[in-house]
Amino acid sequence: QELPLGEILDKYPLQNRWALWFFKNDKNRMWQANLRLVTRFSTVEDFWALYDHIKPASKLSCGCDYSLFKDGIEPMWEDTQNKRGGRWLITLAKQQRHSKLDCFWLDTLLCLIGEMFGDYSDELCGAVINIRSKGDKIAIWTREAENQEAVTHIGRVYKERLGLSQEVTIGYQAHADTATKSNSLTKTKFVV
């Protein structure tokens, strides 16, 4: 896709164009009707203009999500670029909403738009934050759960970038397993 001339001259371009989505749980409507595309961006400056304009994740109501995905990939398992993939999942304790949630989410976004996984960044589809009363969740989604080398590299780098200690482990789940099992039964495919 071609950028407007002003973007080329004045702003730092990103490797990918990204789309921010917002989900608000309204039980009277179908799941997909609750999912809205907020906007797309493809420069560092436009990312910050968006990020500084919207509510921090910690201020969203329970049941809401933000998702940031590469343009052209919808934030759902069914998308062809997601369906063979999975996610590295960070589960936060309730009290971490105030201390850690916004920092973790911002660092997650910066990992994505900065292509901080190097050539393995091609494996990334996006990231999701779920605001839930029983505990918030942040996940990065990759496109192929069987690519063990790429998936574990991404997991190790991600954990380091979030500043998680070595005693903490994070797990990777294939969407195919998440879709068919209840949360507590979903098997963890990889751990870092």
Binding site: P13, V44, W48, D52, L110, G114, G118, R161
Partner: peptide, 18 residues
């Protein structure tokens, strides 16, 4: 091709630049 990679420090510095 060449990948455009930005580290965290650079991205954070861009936040408030004019």
């Amino acid at each position: 091709g060449t990948r455009i990679i930005y580290d965290r420090k650079f991205l954070m510095e861009c936040r408030n630049s004019p």
